[in-house]
């Protein structure tokens, strides 16, 4: 496909007439006050021996109200060796499990938000995804819903039920983004209204700021990953491993190419 053909294809997709029922867009009021836990995890692949990979993962939480962060905690970075062909997927699954596990620890009276969709039914946790693989035809569903929502309920907070327990939500009247929200509990509007009270930080307008905070908190930066790689290698040598063997094991030709 040439560039022009690709552009035409995308334009046709966007222009496809899809009708969504107006009635399915539900407006909700933002609460003045709110309080929630935000959970997130981060991982980095440190070494890849093809038959197995070495990952680093870290999860953490932020507890905040509408004004400030009350508590933040990042767990220690864990090193994990994964023997699997689809090591990356397995790593993602393990990270999510760790996030859910932490979320369950935090559950109580407060809302617990987690970055991403929920793959299982957990009443106490709200999954909020920046991206979603859900689509209508070949078009990302969030794109369509946002387009309709802006037309139907401009400058309002609203939600749209995509499927049972999965919603598209606009948390701030002037947000440019609509997020996928997974929620299995019974107080949807109450929960959304409270989360919306955490979405007026101008630096991430319309997104719960505790989630942005926890993302920054747990993120394993490139520098951290480099340090971990160095530490692993150093400790390996200290424990008698031959450096040449180590390098042969994790030899990545791409690094040399770049």
């Amino acid at each position: 496909m040439k560039i022009d053909d690709a552009v035409d294809y995308i334009r046709n997709l966007i222009d496809t007439e899809i009708d969504l029922s107006k009635d399915n867009f539900v407006e909700f009021e933002r609460k003045g006050k709110g309080m929630a836990y935000a959970i997130d995890g981060s991982s980095a692949k440190l070494f890849d021996a093809y038959s197995f990979s070495v990952f680093a993962r870290r999860v953490g939480y932020v507890f905040a109200n509408e004004r400030k962060v009350i508590e933040r905690k990042a767990k220690d970075i864990e090193i994990d060796i994964i023997y699997a062909e689809n090591a990356d997927e397995e790593n993602d699954a393990r990270r999510q499990k760790e996030e859910i596990s932490l979320a369950m620890e935090c559950c109580g009276e407060n809302i617990v938000m987690i970055d991403g969709a929920l793959n299982e039914k957990i009443d106490e946790v709200v999954g909020i995804s920046k991206k979603s693989g859900l689509k209508k035809g070949n078009i990302p569903i969030l794109f369509i819903i946002k387009k309709f929502g802006e037309k139907n309920l401009p400058n309002k907070c609203w939600y749209y039920e995509i499927e049972k327990n999965v919603y598209a939500v606009k948390f701030h009247p002037y947000s440019r983004f609509v997020f996928r929200v997974d929620y299995y509990g019974n107080d949807l509007e109450e929960v959304l209204a409270e989360i919306a009270s955490l979405c007026n930080d101008v630096s991430c307008l319309g997104y719960p700021y505790p989630l942005a905070e926890v993302h920054r908190l747990v993120k394993i930066s490139r520098e951290e990953a480099e340090y971990l790689k160095y530490e692993l290698q150093k400790r390996a040598v200290e424990k008698g491993l031959n450096l040449e063997e180590w390098e042969d094991l994790f030899y990545d030709y791409h690094e040399y190419l770049e």
């Binding site: 004004r67 009247p173 930080d201």
Partner: peptide, 20 residues
């Protein structure tokens, strides 16, 4: 982007915050 959002919200007389 943040400055742009601030300008927009100022125009609409919407309250906002910049935490941390």
């Amino acid at each position: 982007k943040t400055a742009g959002d601030m300008l927009l919200l100022d125009e609409r007389n919407e309250e906002y915050d910049l935490r941390e």
